[in-house]
């Protein structure tokens, strides 16, 4: 069960939807799906570092992508019940019982790993996992194998060893 105790969509419907979005973005918008580079576009707004001055980031189309993703989340929540702020985090709550401050620290640290990791790897689940895998790109195959293996190891360590 997910948001508002809904059953998630069937995986084939969701997978087909993701493919349709990826293909439309490329076929009409001429852009390759990839979320994590948008994190660099945010940094490019406030940093003079040469890395954030790259041509790739100048169009800022991924800031529109970010805004759309947030709106999609709002829309999903509003249309399935009432929208409200929540601290609920499923398994994390039932196993670790973190107070709000510790929870914030937990997600900041996790976010740091995600920020450094996705930018070092040059992509995340969308850019490497969907787009890059679909094009059989060597960098994507290497990164996907690495992040799936690392995620499996981390989750098993967390939920089967540290906080069973």
């Amino acid at each position: 069960m997910i948001l508002h105790n809904l059953e998630p969509w069937h995986f084939a419907v969701a997978g087909a939807g993701i493919a349709a979005i990826t293909l439309t973005l490329q076929a009409v918008g001429n852009r390759a799906l990839g979320v994590s580079t948008g994190l660099e576009e945010i940094c490019s707004l406030g940093s003079k570092a040469p890395y954030f001055g790259r041509a790739e980031l100048r169009e800022h189309w991924r800031l529109v992508l970010f805004a759309g993703l947030i709106c999609g989340g709002v829309l999903s929540s509003v249309t399935s019940g009432s929208w409200q702020w929540t601290w609920d985090a499923g398994l994390l709550d039932t196993r670790l019982h973190l107070d709000h401050a510790s929870k914030i620290a937990w997600f900041v640290v996790g976010g740091l790993f995600t920020g450094v990791g996705t930018r070092l790897a040059g992509g995340c689940t969308s850019g490497h996992g969907i787009y890059g895998m679909a094009r059989m790109q060597p960098g994507s195959i290497a990164s996907v194998l690495a992040f799936m293996a690392s995620g499996i190891l981390t989750a098993n360590l967390l939920w089967r060893v540290i906080a069973p």
Binding site: V35, F113, V116, T118, A121, A142, F147
Partner: peptide
């Protein structure tokens, strides 16, 4: 490619969100 993937895997497992869902769950009100 590989070291970045390893770090991202840790972050994804800790937060349960890859970069897209960070924004989506923000919209959901988390």
């Amino acid at each position: 490619s590989v070291p970045g993937g390893v770090l991202f895997g840790i972050g994804w497992a800790m937060t349960g969100m890859c970069p897209g869902p960070i924004l989506v769950t923000l919209g959901e009100g988390k």
